Amino acid sequence: MARTSTSLIYRIISLILLIFLYETIGEENLYHSSGGTASWVNTYKECGGKRQSPISLPSAAKAKAQEKFPKFERNNMYDSIPDFYKLTKNYHTIQMEPRFGSGDRPNFTGGPLHNTYILEQLHFHWAAEDEDGCEHSVDGRKASMEAHAVHFNSKYNNIGDALSKSDGLVVVAYFYNASDDVKNSAMDALTNSFAYIYGGKTNVTKKTKRFPISKLIPEIHHGYLTYPGSLTTPPCSESVTWIVYETPIPISHKNIGRFREFYKINPYLKNNFRPLQELNDRVIIGRP
Rank of each mutant, 00 (worst) to 15 (best):
M1E: 13
Y10N: 02
R11D: 00
I12S: 14
S14C: 07
S14I: 00
L17S: 13
L21Q: 09
Y22H: 12
L30E: 06
L30I: 06
S33H: 08
S33W: 06
G35D: 03
T37W: 02
A38M: 03
W40I: 02
W40C: 04
N42D: 04
K45G: 03
C47I: 04
G49V: 01
P54R: 09
P54E: 14
L57I: 13
P58T: 15
A60Y: 05
K71Q: 10
F72V: 05
F72T: 05
N75I: 09
N76A: 12
N76T: 10
D79P: 04
D79C: 08
P82C: 12
P82T: 09
Y85C: 02
L87Y: 08
T88V: 00
T88A: 11
Y91L: 05
H92T: 08
T93V: 00
M96L: 03
E97A: 00
N107R: 11
G110Q: 12
G111K: 03
P112W: 11
N115H: 15
Y117G: 08
I118Y: 04
I118P: 01
Q121E: 09
Q121T: 02
L122H: 04
H125W: 08
H125K: 12
A128W: 01
E129A: 15
E131S: 15
D132P: 03
C134K: 05
E135T: 03
M145R: 10
E146Q: 15
E146K: 07
H148P: 02
V150K: 04
N158A: 11
N158F: 10
A162E: 03
S164M: 06
S164R: 14
D167A: 10
G168A: 13
L169C: 10
S179P: 02
S179W: 03
D181Q: 15
D181P: 08
N184D: 15
A186H: 06
M187I: 14
A189Y: 09
F194S: 09
A195P: 06
A195E: 14
Y196P: 01
Y196A: 00
G200N: 08
K209I: 00
F211R: 11
P212D: 09
P218G: 08
P218E: 01
H222I: 00
L225H: 06
G229F: 08
T233S: 09
S237Y: 07
E238Q: 13
V244N: 11
I251G: 03
F262A: 01
F262C: 00
Y263H: 11
I265T: 15
K270M: 06
K270H: 10
N272H: 11
P275L: 00
P275M: 01
Q277Y: 08
Q277I: 04
E278I: 11
E278Y: 14
L279T: 02
D281L: 15
I284Q: 05
